[in-house]
Design a protein around this nucleic acid. Structure first.
Length: 479
DNA sequence: TGAAATGTTGGGGCG
DNA sequence: ACGCCCCAACATTTC
C-alpha cells in the first residue's frame, strides 16, 4: 500500500537535464521528495516509435542523467497512463509535473493523462521547457497560423523574444527511490553493435551538451555564416541531438549566443545561427497547427504527384551507392555517425525526391531511424520543404546538382574523401564526377567503376528533366 | 538555403 | 583605324 510520505513525480521526457528545467524547479519548490521518472512509451507513439539511432542516444542520456541524480531515476516501459496509475497505487503521490511535448500523439496522450490524474485528486502541472515560444501563443492578426517562415520569424516569434533567462539546477533535492525496470530492460540497444562508430563521435549528456555549446561559440560561431555551408569544416553547432532530447534548452542557447555576440562582436554570425533556432521553432509551430505534417502534403496538389516506387533505388540511396560522391558521402556519414551535415542533408534529400522521384516519406522514414537527432517536427517539416510540398517550401524546380554542389562546398574534397576512402586518391578535378576521369587517372587512383565504386545510377540531365515534367503535371492542379 | 538557358557587355584578335 | 567575331564574365529569366 501507499507509503506515508507524499512524493512529487517529475516525469522526464524530452528534457533530460537538471538545469533550466521548469518541471524540476516547480517540484523543488514543493519541498517534498521527488520521484524522477522516465517512461519509454512505445504503445502510444504509433508510426513514430523512436528510431534505432535515437534509442542508442536515449540509452546513454538516461544513463548519464541517472548517474547525476545518484541512481534515483525510475525507468518504466509501456503505456504511460497505466504506469503512472500503477505508481499511484504504490506511493502517495501529491503531484505530477512535466515539460510539454508537441508531437500530436504526445499531446493526445498527455491531455488524457492530465484529466485522469486530476480526477484522482493529483495536482498536475505542465510547463514549457523546449521552445522559445509555444505555438498556441503565436498567430497572425486574422487569428490564423503563419505559413511562411520569414513573417513568422520576424513578426510572430520576435514579439516573444527575448525568452526568459535560463535557471540553474535546483539544489538540495531529496530524491525518492522507486524501481520498476532496469535501463537494460528498456532494450534500447540493438543486438548487433552497429553503434560502435557512432559512439566514437558522440557523448550524450547534459554536461557534454554544455561543452559542445561552448566550443561552438569559440570555434564555429566566428565563421558561422559562410562556414556552415562547408561539410568538411566544423562550423555548425551539432547541438541538434542534445536539443532534441532536451539536454540543452533553447533558452540556454539563446542567451549564451546573445552574450557571445556581444562579447565577441559577432552580431551577423550570431543572427544567422539564431535564425536556425527560428527554423526549429517554425517546424514545431507547423506540426502543432498542422498535425498531419508528417503524413500529408501541405500542398494538396502534391497528392497527385507521379512518384515512382523503386525499392532498389531507395536502397542504393540508403547505402550510399548512388555513384554521386557527395550524396554517397552524406548517406555514409549518416550511417556511420547518426548525423549528417545540414547542407548535405539538402543535397541527399533533393537527390532522392527529385532525381530519383521517390516519395519524401521514404526519406523521412530513413532519417527517422538513422539520425541521432531525429525529431518529428524538424524531420517532417524539412522533408516537405525539400520536396516542395510544404506550405513555405523550396520551389519544386530548385533541384540540386550534386556535382556542382560538391565542387562548390567540398572543393578540396576533404568531406568526400573522409567517407568514401575508395575515391581518396582521385585528383580534386574528378573527385565529384569520377566517371568523367580518363582511364589512366582512374587506374592510378585505384578506382574501378562498378567494381569498387558505382557509376551514376541516373543521369543528372535527364532525371532533372523528368522531375520538371512531373512537376508540370501537378502545377496547374487546383486545391 | 539552385541550375540552366538566355541575354548583355566589353576586351582582344584579326582581317 | 575600323568592323566583325569570339567568348568570357556577368546579369536576367525561366524552370
Amino acid at each position: 500500500m501507499a507509503s506515508d510520505q507524499p512524493v512529487v513525480i517529475v516525469w522526464f521526457r524530452q528534457d533530460l537535464r537538471l538545469t533550466d528545467n521548469p518541471a524540476l524547479i516547480a517540484a523543488a519548490k514543493d519541498r517534498q521528495k521527488i520521484l524522477p521518472l522516465y517512461i519509454l512509451d512505445d504503445e502510444n507513439s504509433g508510426q513514430w516509435k523512436m528510431g534505432a539511432a535515437s534509442r542508442w542516444w536515449l540509452h546513454n542520456s538516461l544513463s548519464d542523467l541517472n548517474r547525476r541524480i545518484d541512481g534515483h531515476l525510475c525507468l518504466a516501459k509501456g503505456d504511460a497512463l497505466s504506469i503512472l496509475e500503477d505508481i499511484l497505487r504504490q506511493k502517495k503521490v501529491s503531484a505530477v509535473y512535466w515539460n510539454r511535448c508537441y508531437e500530436p500523439w504526445c499531446i493526445k496522450r498527455d491531455t488524457k493523462i492530465k484529466s485522469t490524474l486530476t480526477d484522482h485528486g493529483i495536482r498536475v502541472k505542465s510547463f514549457n521547457g523546449s521552445l522559445l515560444c509555444e505555438p498556441h501563443l503565436i498567430s497572425k492578426k486574422d487569428d490564423t497560423p503563419y505559413k511562411v517562415f520569414t513573417p513568422f520569424y520576424q513578426k510572430g516569434l520576435s514579439e516573444h523574444l527575448p525568452p526568459p533567462l535560463p535557471k540553474p539546477a535546483p539544489t538540495q533535492l531529496k530524491w525518492c527511490k522507486h524501481t520498476i525496470v532496469s535501463l537494460k530492460a528498456l532494450n534500447l540497444l540493438p543486438d548487433i553493435k552497429w553503434y560502435q562508430s557512432i559512439k566514437k563521435i558522440w557523448t550524450p549528456g547534459e554536461q557534454e551538451a554544455q561543452k559542445y555549446l561552448n566550443s561552438f561559440l569559440q570555434q564555429g560561431l566566428p565563421d558561422y555564416k559562410k562556414g556552415r555551408d562547408y561539410p568538411a569544416k566544423e562550423s555548425t553547432s551539432r547541438l541538434s541531438p542534445y536539443l532534441h532530447f532536451g539536454e540543452l534548452s533553447p533558452f540556454q542557447i539563446w542567451h549564451t549566443v546573445q552574450k557571445s555576440m556581444f562579447v565577441q562582436r559577432l552580431e551577423t554570425q550570431g543572427a544567422h545561427f539564431l535564425r536556425e533556432l527560428g527554423w526549429r521553432e517554425f517546424s514545431y509551430y507547423l506540426l502543432y497547427h498542422f498535425p498531419d505534417l508528417p503524413k500529408k502534403n501541405m500542398q494538396p496538389k502534391f497528392n497527385h504527384f507521379p512518384w515512382r516506387d523503386n525499392k532498389r533505388a531507395i536502397i542504393r540511396w540508403q547505402k550510399g551507392q548512388t555513384g554521386y560522391p557527395v550524396v554517397d558521402a552524406g548517406m555514409r556519414e549518416l550511417w556511420q555517425t547518426g548525423y549528417m551535415h545540414n547542407r548535405v542533408r539538402m543535397i541527399t534529400a533533393s537527390f532522392l525526391v527529385k532525381n530519383l522521384l521517390q516519395h519524401w516519406h521514404h526519406g523521412e522514414k530513413w532519417f527517422w531511424d538513422t539520425l541521432v537527432d531525429a525529431d518529428l517536427a524538424n524531420n517532417s517539416a524539412s522533408w516537405q520543404w525539400v520536396a516542395g510540398s510544404g506550405a513555405d517550401a523550396a520551389p519544386y524546380f530548385r533541384i540540386f546538382n550534386p556535382v556542382t554542389q560538391g565542387q562548390k562546398f567540398d572543393t578540396q574534397g576533404n568531406y568526400v574523401r573522409r567517407y568514401i576512402p575508395e575515391l581518396a586518391a582521385l585528383p580534386d578535378k574528378y573527385l565529384h564526377c569520377p566517371w568523367t576521369a580518363p582511364e589512366d587517372v582512374l587506374k592510378s587512383s585505384g578506382v574501378i567503376l562498378d567494381d569498387n565504386y558505382p557509376s551514376p545510377m541516373v543521369d543528372l540531365k535527364t532525371s532533372r528533366e523528368s522531375a520538371l515534367s512531373a512537376f508540370a503535371k501537378i502545377k496547374t492542379d487546383s486545391v
